[in-house]
């Protein structure tokens, strides 16, 4: 079980959290202008990163708030958690899918 550092509540066991999948996927501003391929990519295509991966979590059985975590999927070590609206740190942005 992971120990996850909620940016609002501090470290709590994984059982208190719900995973929200890959982070930083913005809903297209004008969905009607998208091609079918672009819409499918938004809905279904994921990086599935092997390495540093940015993902959403929700402290479902705690404060209830969403936040992001940067986790290495080869070790499951969470390098950092950060609030919604923040970007991953520059050193982390280097990680490609």
């Amino acid at each position: 079980m992971l120990l996850i550092n909620c940016p609002y509540c501090g470290p709590r066991p994984e059982a208190e959290f719900a995973n929200g999948g890959q982070a930083h996927i913005a809903r297209p501003a004008d969905p009607m202008s998208l091609t079918d391929d672009e819409w499918a990519a938004y809905l279904y295509m994921r990086d599935n990163t092997k390495g540093l991966h940015h993902e959403r979590w929700r402290h479902a059985n705690g404060c209830g708030r969403f936040f992001n975590a940067s986790r290495d999927t080869t070790t499951d070590v969470i390098k950092r958690t950060y609030r919604m609206g923040e970007r991953p740190e520059a050193e982390h942005q280097g990680a490609k899918p």
Partner: peptide, 13 residues
């Protein structure tokens, strides 16, 4: 597990 991973191990819960 609820999260993506390549570790070939999961949580005991």
């Amino acid at each position: 597990d609820v999260y993506t991973s390549y570790t070939q191990r999961g949580g005991l819960h």
